[in-house]
Write a protein that binds this DNA or RNA. Sequence first.
DNA 1: GAGTGGTCTAGACCACATT
DNA 2: ATGTGGTCTAGACCACTCA
Lengths: 246, 246
Amino acid sequence: MTRRHQQIAEALRRAIADGRHPVGSALPSEAQLADAHGVSRGTVRQALAALLAEGLIGSRQGARHLVLSTAPGQSLTELRSFARWARAGGHRPGGQVLDSARGTADGEEAALLQLPPDAEVLRVLRVRTLDGEPVLLERTVYAGWIADAVEELPADCESVTQALLDSRGPVFAHGEHHLDALAAGTVDAQKLRVRRGSPLLRVRRTTATAEGRPVETADDRYRPGEVVFSVRNSTQANPLARARAD
Amino acid sequence: MTRRHQQIAEALRRAIADGRHPVGSALPSEAQLADAHGVSRGTVRQALAALLAEGLIGSRQGARHLVLSTAPGQSLTELRSFARWARAGGHRPGGQVLDSARGTADGEEAALLQLPPDAEVLRVLRVRTLDGEPVLLERTVYAGWIADAVEELPADCESVTQALLDSRGPVFAHGEHHLDALAAGTVDAQKLRVRRGSPLLRVRRTTATAEGRPVETADDRYRPGEVVFSVRNSTQANPLARARAD
DNA sequence: GAGTGGTCTAGACCACATT
DNA sequence: ATGTGGTCTAGACCACTCA
C-alpha cells in the first residue's frame, strides 16, 4: 500500500532515469502532471518535493521544473551496504571477520545504542575488501538483541546487511554518520596494509530500525584513494534555507 | 516580506532554543498551532516540515511532534556557509584570502563547472579560522560569470555566501560533496599549522544555482579534530525521525 | 474512543518567467 | 498577456497512538 505521491515520485524517477526527461529539459507543469495522474496539484507537489530534496530536479518560481541529473550515485543518503555498493560500482566485494566477542557496553556505546549501562553487546572486527584489496576496517558493536542473528553468519559473509534482511526483515532504516580524518594506528596499518600514521577516512555511524531502535554502532576506517563518499543536497527541499546572519 | 510559514518556523525554532519546548517534550498539535497563528493547518505543516528536515523535531503518525534537539547539528543536508555554521556552534568565524587570480579552466574544472574548455575562471585560496585557529584551507574555482562579484569582496570577508546572497540573490541551491582523506602537503601543513603528512579531511564540492548552473567548485581541507561532518539519513523519503544529542 | 498526524482535494491569489 | 510555480485555505478521510 504505497501512497499516491510516492507512486508519482517513483514514476518521475524512472522517467528521468530512462531518458524520457533528459537532463536539462523541463518537466510537464504541475497541472499537467496532476491531470495525467488523476490527482490534485497538492499531491503532485508532494512528489516533486521528494525529487527536489534528492537534487534530481530544480525549480524557479514562474518556470517549469528542470531535470538536473539522472540518478544519484553512491550517496550517504541511501543506506546501502558495502557489498551492494561495491557491486554497483562493478567491483567484487569481500570480507573477513577477524574477531568477534561478546562483552558489556561501555558508557559511550550504551548511550549510542540506547541500552542500559553494562548491557550485553557483540563486538566484531571485520576487514572488507574490494577486488581482493583491503579498503575498510570495520569495528562494529551490535546491540544484544540482534547479536544471535549476527553470530550465526559465516565469518566470510559477503553482506551482513543482506543476510540480516533475509533472516530478520528490514532491520536498518535510519542512520547517522559522522565523518572525519585520522592517522592510522598500529592495527589499522597492519590490516589495511598502509603505513602507521597515514591518513584514513573515519565514519562513525549508528543505524536504527524504523521505530528508532538502535541496532549497531560502528567505527569504519577507509583507506584513502579507494573510496569516496558523496552527498548531494539542496536548499530547496524544504523552504528553510535563507540566510540572515545575526 | 517573509512568508507566513517561514515566520512560524522561526517562532518555533526560537521557542525550542529558549527552552519553552524542552527536548523530549511534545509540541502543540498542528490544529492548535494553526489556531494560535491564525493560519490553516497546511501552512503549519509547511513550517513543521522545515524543522523536520533540520532534525529539530521528529514525528510519528498519531502522536504529537517531539522535540529532538535544541539546535541542528552541522549537516551536509543543509547548505550552510562556514560562517553560519561556526556561529551556530558558538564559535567566532574568520577568514583570509591568501591568493586570488584569474585564469583559464583546465579540463577537469571545465567539466565540473560545465564551461567550455579554456573558459575564464577565478581561483581563490582562502584560509578559514575558528576562534582564531586555522581549521580549513579552501581552494575555490569560481565560474567567470560570478567572478566579478567575488573579486569585489574584501579579502577578510567573513561570509562569502552571505555577501553573494546580498549582492546577487540566492546563488547556491544545490551541492554535491565528495569526502575523502589525504595527507597534508607542504602548503596545507604551513597554512593549517600541522605537520606535513598528517591526515586531513578533504571535501571536494560543486555548488550550483537553482537552475542547475554551476557556480563554484572547491577543494576544502579540514584539520581533523576540529570539525566533523554529520549526515543523517533514512530509507524512507524525507521523514527524519530520531536523533541523539551528543 | 478521542485526538493526532499523514494524505488528499479543489479551489484561490500572488510573484515571477516567458513570449 | 499568459502560464507557471509558491503560497494559503477549508474542508475531508484514514491510520495510528494513547489513555
